[in-house]
Write a protein that binds this DNA or RNA. Structure first.
Lengths: 249, 249
DNA sequence: TTATCTTTGTTCGTTATTCGCACAGGAATG
DNA sequence: CATTCCTGTGCGAATAACGAACAAAGATAA
């Protein structure tokens, strides 16, 4: 029987919170219900509860999330030792090569930025700790998926939505790149997430050899030929990677 | 009869999530129940639900929040137009004076960092977008509280816990500084949040004159006399403040 | 070691609450 | 005016939460 007692109301409410997104920051009750796949009455109760607790605001027509919801995730980010440990090395790497670098971890089918050392370069998308991108089309995502068993990685591809004309959307093609990343120990992305942006990533391992995160360099596409990127930047990445292997538990 | 129907289960679950903190990232059922002021059975159901949904992990003894909870807050941060708008100006300000600068907003009795331009300086506390600090002892917090009515500001002081020997912990003394900030249009903090760190902040207003955020400069305490700080740095802050007033809606 | 005490985790039946359907009131649209 | 959404609200049925009692695991002391 083993029926686990679970709190339905909590699950529903979290679904409602996740129904909000950057594209749809303002939701009516009906929209929220549709996005969370709940009954309108239930969604309404959730939203009223969130508003009462200060997590949401209501202007009579639309509900909006308030900054108070950030408090929910902050505990987790502040808890993680990773950001503090990697930040100085990330700064060093970024200074060495003169380009932006980041560290991210895997959550389901997305990568989550946990640290970043930005150089003053123009980029359309603002990346900061907590930001998320699909794993399948990012260099760090491919490196992180490569650390998982084949079937597990395939199940975490998520929806293969093209972000640029260069984005690989065939599951087998993506899995082939992931296999290549596993064999090579690094992944290289050419404008699959944003036009004009290339990226090269290596996995970060702890002292036991377990992959705990990924580190990348973001590179403007105008700078060099794709074929030269690995030779030019992989050395610096490998140095920092080796140093961090000693630091991480 | 005006009885608002609210979902108790959701409220309880959110209390449980907030029970996790940087100091106590790993909680047993009993600890979580105590921190969230819930019955153990209730806390257990909440934690099991969170674990089932992937927001928490359970190793048989302790529960931990997973990076998946970051997804809850991300929607709100990604939604906000503020970070993207202020970031270039913040970078410019930071380059001008050679010190770190930040923008934050008020949430209850805390300030929440939404953007930051860091210079390569040593700081014990890692600040990033989403980080929180008490409002009462920070320069940005005093400036933001100064924008509220007196009684409202006083009710948002929160717990006046000293973070350093310099921290003001008397409500009336803090309110006096807030009143001074309201009169002067800026706030200056001398090592109240961290030894060796001073900070000067101004409010950011939109084109209607409403205070929507605060902007500060973090300054090492070894650099100059406290009395000279306003004269030296306020000019640069005021320039960016004026520019942002045109940009913000 | 054994015994007792304390703390923690789990189970269970009762109670109170929520779920989801249905209907009605409004507001915007054509 | 009719139509189409969206929202608010009862109500019966279902079910999840409550709290105490029970079981399990350490901790302390003799």
């Amino acid at each position: 029987m083993e029926k686990r007692d679970t709190m339905g109301g909590l699950a529903k409410g979290l679904r409602v919170i996740e129904a909000f997104s950057a594209e749809k920051p303002r939701l009516t009750i009906t929209e929220a219900a549709a996005r969370a796949d709940l009954d309108r009455a239930t969604a309404r109760r959730c939203l009223l509860t969130l508003a009462e607790l200060g997590y949401a605001a209501f202007d009579g027509k639309f509900f909006t999330l308030t900054p108070h919801v950030l408090r929910l995730g902050t505990a987790c980010l502040a808890t993680m030792p990773l950001p503090g440990l990697v930040q100085p090395w990330l700064d060093q790497l970024s200074d060495m090569v003169g380009e932006s670098s980041s560290v991210s971890i895997l959550d389901r089918s997305e990568i989550v930025y946990v640290a970043r050392a930005a150089q003053k370069k123009v980029m359309s998308i603002a990346l900061m700790p907590g930001s998320r991108l699909p794993a399948f089309c990012t260099s760090m995502g491919r490196v992180l998926l490569a650390a998982l068993p084949e079937t597990e990685a395939r199940s975490r591809l998520g929806i293969l939505a093209a972000r640029t004309p260069h984005t690989l959307t065939d599951p087998d093609a993506v899995m082939a790149r992931i296999a290549a990343a596993r064999a090579d120990g690094y992944a290289l992305i050419d404008q699959e997430v944003e036009i004009g942006l290339r990226s090269i990533a290596v996995p970060l391992m702890d002292s036991h050899g377990r992959v705990v995160a990924a580190m990348n360099l973001g590179l403007p596409a105008t700078q060099a030929r794709v074929e030269d990127l690995a030779e030019r930047y992989l050395g610096a990445l490998r140095v920092i990677q080796a140093e961090l292997r000693k630091v991480l538990t």
